[in-house]
Design a protein around this nucleic acid. Structure first.
Lengths: 247, 247
DNA sequence: CGGATGGTTGAAACCGTTCAAAATCTGTGG
DNA sequence: CCACAGATTTTGAACGGTTTCAACCATCCG
């Protein structure tokens, strides 16, 4: 059996899909394209007719305030859907852009919408995907509202470790950070300068090694404690066992 | 024709529902109960078998960090579903509690899950509801990450004005704030003291009048400008016209 | 080599927090 | 109708985390 594409893998975290659904997913992303870093896939305010899926690289959701302040509201890793809500809400209330060179598939919303009428298992997996996105957004609210700069960095690094591990893009304790310090600042609601200093503190305290973009978590135990990181919001597979909760 | 309950009204913001679906919604919430303020409906970490819907009053989603810091991640107004993800993710990753005395319905997840297999229009409305929740969460991320205390308060008051107006719980420019200043602090990621001082500034600048819990927005034009408030994330009805985007 | 991007450092200013206490409001029972 | 306790709002003052401004350094790459 061939290795499933990242999107299929992601959706099957919820429940095994019928063979027909898996083939369908393969088809939908067959026309993917390679895109450079810092390219917009969709822009705030426009009416969008395509749902985007990241297959390689990394993108983000972000908003820019009238005076130029920017806030990143989500990281989109391989297998993640950038803008699924376009299915039912076509007006974009944020922008989507790549953070590094990426491979992205673009699916007409009418096609996907039609599919949801004939593929209940797949539709349920997409709904699950929506719930998980929302759970991550909630956790970011907590991170921004009630954690210090130091803790926010620790928390974000823990989240990325787990999310990248699931898709096989991280080792036991190291991965390639897909963002610059300026982008970390826009993610964590901090200034660039303060991100830099907080990173140094994480290094000095022996929690991480960060050389260029390669991040190694040298003491994940303590890093998770600093972040008061509780992975349950990612709803890891192991917790519910195989398959979705019984109906 | 009788006035629909708040939940039905909320779900019909997306699309008109078949008469059968509306009757079903009435049935589901017929066994609602009255609950005092500050009562938990569901607690973080537990496996929940019920979906809760607010019919009167106000509840919130919140998380408490190990050291006691608290962050509110959503306000749940009449018609809002507290924990719909329980359908597919039964483990709670946050708590739900009332902010004021409320009327709340509690629906077994297996019942609602079964319904989603036989009522496509209703299911789609529920999915839409999920997307809208997520859009609000994203906006809160922007609010917490990139706005000052003063701007956060302004933004929150704008959001509540619109959301309460939709359900007929706010006049043109005034409503009853369902929260104390301490709760505002836990919502906006600020200290109680600073919330108090920022509120005074909003008053002194003539943007609001706040007496007890009664809030009047005296200059909504300027309040929205201060908050750089853009209501599109609430996906108001008027924008898409009647009914959902065409398939 | 030169320009662009990303990372690092220093110092001053500011926004928001903390601690502590007073003032006001609210509901309740006597 | 008053007294009282608890919750909520308000105020003052000191402290500190974070920002801002302004350089400087390192690296990469054509």
């Amino acid at each position: 059996m061939p290795v499933p594409n990242p999107w299929t893998r992601k959706l099957e975290q919820f429940d095994r899909l019928p063979e027909a659904d898996r083939r369908l997913l393969d088809d939908l992303i067959s026309a993917s394209r390679r895109i450079g870093a810092n390219q917009d896939l969709a822009a705030e305010g426009e009416v969008s007719h395509h749902v985007h899926v990241v297959l390689e690289g990394c993108a983000c959701r972000y908003r820019i305030l009238p005076d130029g302040r920017r806030q990143i509201t989500a990281y989109l890793l391989p297998g993640d859907i950038c803008d699924l809500h376009v299915l039912l809400l076509t007006r974009m209330d944020y922008s989507v852009g790549t953070l590094v060179p990426s491979m992205v598939a673009s699916i007409p919303r009418t096609i996907l919408l039609g599919i949801t009428e004939r593929h209940p298992k797949l539709t349920r997996a997409l709904w699950w995907n929506t719930f998980r996105d929302e759970a991550i957004a909630r956790e970011w609210i907590v991170m921004l509202g009630r954690r210090s700069a130091y803790e926010r960095l620790a928390h974000l690094f823990c989240e990325l470790l787990l999310r990248l591990r699931i898709i096989g893009a991280a080792g036991d304790e190291s991965y390639v950070l897909p963002v610059t310090q300026a982008e970390l600042a826009d993610t964590l609601g901090l200034s660039l300068v303060h991100v830099n200093r907080s990173l140094q503190r994480l290094r000095h305290e022996g929690l991480i090694v960060l050389e260029g973009r390669s991040l190694t978590i040298t003491d994940s135990e303590r890093l998770m404690a600093v972040a008061s990181f509780n992975p349950s919001y990612l709803h890891p597979r192991s917790e519910t066992g195989r398959g979705p909760p019984p109906s």
